[in-house]
Design a protein around this nucleic acid. Sequence first.
DNA 1: CGGGGGCTTGAGGCCACTCAACGATAGTGG
DNA 2: CCACTATCGTTGAGTGGCCTCAAGCCCCCG
Lengths: 225, 225
Amino acid sequence: MFARIIAATPHPNWLSDLGMTSRPEPLVSVSEFTHKKGTEIYGEEEPAEYVYQVKTGAVRSYKLLSDGRRQIGAFHLAGDIFGLENSGAHRFTAEAIVDTTVRLIRRQSLELVAASSAVVSKNLLSVTTRDLQHAEDHMLLLGRKTALERVAAFLLEMDKRLTAAGVMTLPMSRLDIADYLGIRLETVARALSQLRGAGVLDFIGNNQREIVLRDRVRLASFDLA
Amino acid sequence: MFARIIAATPHPNWLSDLGMTSRPEPLVSVSEFTHKKGTEIYGEEEPAEYVYQVKTGAVRSYKLLSDGRRQIGAFHLAGDIFGLENSGAHRFTAEAIVDTTVRLIRRQSLELVAASSAVVSKNLLSVTTRDLQHAEDHMLLLGRKTALERVAAFLLEMDKRLTAAGVMTLPMSRLDIADYLGIRLETVARALSQLRGAGVLDFIGNNQREIVLRDRVRLASFDLA
DNA sequence: CGGGGGCTTGAGGCCACTCAACGATAGTGG
DNA sequence: CCACTATCGTTGAGTGGCCTCAAGCCCCCG
């Protein structure tokens, strides 16, 4: 599965994200791997051998119903850690949305370090808590918000995470957004058109995935606290 | 707030749930408190001073939108631990659904023990992971399932958790169920009627909260894997 | 016995879904 | 370089599942 290991040099960022800042950790080796657009990184129910961090690119984590309905639980962007499982198996399928390079580390070696380092185990809890918090907020969105509110919330979330130079470049398709927000892709398109018509945002150039937010305050008023 | 501390004797179950089985733990003291039906245990955004476990009764955890829409994230039944926050503040409001007795422990003292005990900190992670898993499954339900599927899934979940002698006694109202499933209470009632008409379940006596499942297999076929 | 809360059921309306057509863009191969 | 094709996004028209509003029942409780 991990046929080509692009690089096997330990990466400081990875370690610092888990709280192992100063000392060199001989037990932990970090590798890198690049997944092509649209390919699976791991599948739901698969044994969780690795923990991942996005170096470049974007990843979607989702669950499927037996008839094909899909719910995306999270998008993972540069810097995000994903695939961290306490039980032994992955609970989502993870796919590269675009060509994506990930850092990876054996779950086993991470647990080994965590067992002896209070700092590391505390950071594992911290990462899990962040995921939990996001899931809890998303339950509120999925259970109680209107389509327009969902799209507005999505734009604000992405704005915080990937806006550079005033422009937000979405890596994911309308279908991905729809399956994240629990609505249909046509509904996403209609909501975006409505927000564009209201002067809240604009598309840049000929690519519909480049968005500039003209009025974040008014956009926020379409969502609710 | 905790005016009457009913009992201050450490309870073995609480400790064992967090992995402190054998040794006496002088740092941790467990108290009990009883909340009357409908009263708040803690509010969203409040500093998290205690961690709780349901001894008897039932609790709902929910978030509100500013216009009053409510999303219940979880029901906590006998034995369940809730209110465990890694950050310092509660992310839900918790209310007693019926008269409820909880065991409680200071968050601070728990963290103190966790810092020195790998077993305890591992169990904190384990509890958090269980919550995360539930939230992830619930996102799929809220984002992608039909009303009938949601109610079927709810009945199967509750069946696992509180069926005694073939009868399931729901502590929560139709409105609570609706706000848990992201639908309206009328829709819950209609789905239950439909399932009753299909012979999958029956109400017992004159109380509509006592339900007996006549055909779990067929009920499961209304939900989806 | 009157009042209120919880539940069910009916009738009508609306928001999001379904189905469909169309335009634009990127990638492919002749 | 230019069809050719596939993919993605937008928009329109009509449908339907769930929501809204309302009435009525049952049971508990004062």
